[in-house]
Amino acid sequence: MGWRWFHEWGSPKWFYDRAGRWQRVCGFLALALLLVGTLWGLGFAPADYQQGNSYRIIYLHVPVAFLAQALYVAMAVCAIVLFVWKMKLADVGMQALAVVGFGFTVLALFSGSIWGKPTWGTYWVWDARLTSMLILGFLYLGLIGLRSAIQNPDQAGKACAILVLVGVVNLPIIKYSVEWWSALHQPASFKLTEKPAMPASMWVPLLINLLGYYLVAAYLVLASMRTVILDRERGSAWVREVIERD
């Protein structure tokens, strides 16, 4: 009984049907949360005593930087599932996560770089945190390129899974870079395990946006997975039924 859900999750048809519903829920919730969190952060949170208004970039930069790493962790889980259980859906997940993860990494790099100008006086320094995030971006890009370079989907999946697992070594480097080396980037301003140093009027909108961006990522990944499933399963009867029904 206990493993039934696991087999259901492995079925592209089962997942395709449900993901359509989950996607809509995630989309609506994300829109509502981001509207509240962003307006609150931009207009109602007090200015920082040192950085002034420039700190308001935090309401986008921190959630997308969190997500850039979280999506890579999700890809690593998919890679392990693919190797251990040979589940097709795990490979579909890896393909979808790479594109969305790349988008969030680009956003984290650019938003951080723009924030760096008023704070550090420069858009870019070869600081350990910034460089390891740039490497994360190249890893995502490499995965997208590797998949499109290999014709056979099974081989492409395995090659990507190996690259994903090798790239996991970069995640602790990103996380601890500000502690291991003398970095210009500040340490984490928001930890789930500790009470934030900033007042609630500043961190509550950050938390709302964090949830909102997670839901945006879920929406994008689910939508992308449905597209990949349609493309890969185009020969099966259930896909043709879905197309005829639409």
């Binding site: 308001r56 970039i57 930069h61 956003l107 650019f110 723009i114 100008k117």
Partner: peptide, 16 residues
């Protein structure tokens, strides 16, 4: 800091 803040949110909207 408006010249830094608004482009970041614009870029966010554009990318997502």
């Amino acid at each position: 800091h408006g010249i830094y803040i608004w482009p970041v949110y614009g870029l966010g909207l554009l990318v997502i």
